[in-house]
Amino acid sequence: MCAQISQSDGESIFADLDDEGSEREEEISPRKRQLRLYRRALGEQWRVLSQDNLVVASVITLLFFITMAITAPFVAPYGQTERLTADDGTIAQWEQPFWYGGEGGYVLGTTAEGYDLFSQLLYGSRAALLVGLLAAVFVAGIGTMVGLVSGYYGGRVDDALMRLVDFMYGLPLLPTVILLVALAGPSLVNLILAIIVLQWRTTARVIRSQALSLRERPFVKAAKVAGASDRHIILKHLAPNVLPLTFLYGAFSIAWAILTEAGVAFLGLGDPNHVSWGTMLQSARSYNALTHEAWWWFLPPGICIALVVISGFLIGRGYEEITNPELQE
């Protein structure tokens, strides 16, 4: 992971939020206040992020694929594993796209088994996004919580959690996911679980070092002196301050999770009940689409994967620039 985060020792982006206790604040419930705190933090993030055209383009790309995933059943002309027959009653195998001279009017042609590639591509976005987004949310969430707890409490808790993280770092990503998925059975849920189990380590380590330094900041010390509970300090004072980092790692996790899903599916360990871009590539390879030069079979899924992954990286990079002032020119 190329994220080398070092937040400057100066004030945090949110330092002012804590000092703004105007009288009105006390009238609203603490819950509302907290909500507002997070919302302001996110709003601020978005304001900075949206100045970067690449980030905006990435968000639009992600939204496009999310829409694709939601609307797939309505847009897709055929089912994902619906065997198509040609006019003469035979299975419509190896059909070329209609704009390439193929028969049957298939947008991207058909597979060797007679499935519609365009429909598969649309449905494939569901697996990718499901894995990418779910894994990202949990990876970032678990990593942040572990990191905060570890960094805030220090001592034994920190030691224990960090030894666990060290152990996790001893596991190679892809082989471990392969092993877990193979033993637990190939399904999207197991795959997501395997990715989460392996990926939270990075976030946890980074957030912990951040929490270690935050713990020494005056506003945290003040809250402690004022008798705030640990839970309160972690959720209200520490969490909003590490939020940009959480998002950074969340964005990167989308990219990694999708790459991992595609890879595992390509190896033949994909969920047999769901077509994904990875399984499309796998069948393209096993049916020798390469030597058939059926590029409409294996080009589009790869491009889709790359687009989603690039979007994840670029959003991450945008965040990296927020969190790492040295990168700002």
Partner: peptide, 29 residues
């Protein structure tokens, strides 16, 4: 560098095999 890290390497491998192996026939499949 961003492109290189975003395209799945196995997919790039497929493309390379397609172009240089199946099509131009200069590398073994």
């Amino acid at each position: 560098a961003l492109i290189a890290r975003s395209f799945p390497d196995f997919w790039v491998g497929l493309i390379v095999l397609w172009i240089f192996g199946a099509w131009l026939d200069v590398i073994p499949m």
